[in-house]
Design a protein around this nucleic acid. Structure first.
Lengths: 161, 161
DNA sequence: CCTAATATTTCGAAAAACGTAGTATTCGTA
DNA sequence: TACGAATACTACGTTTTTCGAAATATTAGG
């Protein structure tokens, strides 16, 4: 009844909704995906350096500079130099930025609790178990990516031949 | 134990993975999001017109033209005129395009079946029920968006009361 | 101190999205 | 059956975003 291909199609339909949220949510996406996740990261960490940002969003430094430029210009974040090491730039959310993230997260919470409230206790329990199982399985698989894909990023140990 | 805020954070982490797949999958995303969903739509429908494409990806015509231009140029789709109405352009996947979509869908199927095989029969049953319940609930909520947002697009069947 | 390393910005180029104006074809009707 | 409106797209130019390479500023190490 629910064969794999069918489920894949269903999955794709739902992924599309994430990529085009404006089609079904009243959410004015005034941010690029980089900007969005930068804001979310800032909301979680409160203060980050450019280097930390680059590690998180996995982009070149120059891209991160552009992101910070725009977010500062539009008033969503604050950029200041570290007092102890003046090379380092520290980013924080502005009041407006915090508000925006809060609004987004509230919206997500809203949908989430709506959905969760619709489930029975038993279903909730099963769902928790399933989610953990799925995440573990994926993690496990992804920890050892296809051969030749290891040492792809972060500091490399150089093999001396 | 699993409060709402926690789940939201978890959700965001996982959404990030969808937006930055190259960080955890060996998937060379040579496509923009528009191009990607155009290919997936073509894979499902086999033949589409520009107008149908625009309806699906919800973009201006000129954007769609650009998408088709690039996909044709790179050999993933074929663009031809309708015989019966020469204004209409018909898009189809090329052999290379089909191959690429197949590869992507196979990869998704792979992860999916890996995860599903890890679940017990009981869990699978619960999951199916939960997924449907969740999707229905969301649908139900989204069918009546915030007031003033109705008749936004496409033709609606009007309920006569 | 002076050189290397670190942290970040600047600059310029390329790609993507899209508004507006234009072209080609078909439809409707008089 | 001719001709203006409607339809289906494309072309062009601008803006935004990403990002490589070179430049700048600060700190660390010997």
């Amino acid at each position: 009844m629910l064969d794999l291909d069918h489920i894949v199609d269903l999955l794709i339909d739902n992924i599309k909704k994430l990529f085009f949220p404006e089609e079904w949510i009243e959410l004015d996406m005034k941010f690029s995906k980089f900007e969005l996740f930068t804001m979310l990261f800032l909301d979680k960490r409160k203060e980050i350096t450019m280097t930390e940002l680059v590690e998180y969003i996995n982009s070149p430094m120059s891209t991160a500079t552009g992101i910070a430029d725009r977010l500062v210009k539009n008033g969503y974040i604050i950029r200041e130099r570290s007092e102890t090491d003046r090379r380092i730039v520290i980013l924080r959310l502005s009041e407006e930025g915090s508000q925006w993230v809060k609004k987004l997260k509230d919206m997500i919470s809203g949908y989430l609790s709506m959905v969760l409230n619709d489930l029975t206790e038993e279903e909730k329990q099963f769902m928790t178990a399933i989610v953990f199982k799925v995440m573990n399985k994926l993690q496990e698989k992804l920890i050892k990516p296809s051969p030749g894909e290891q040492n792809k990023k972060d500091i490399r140990k150089i093999e001396i031949e």
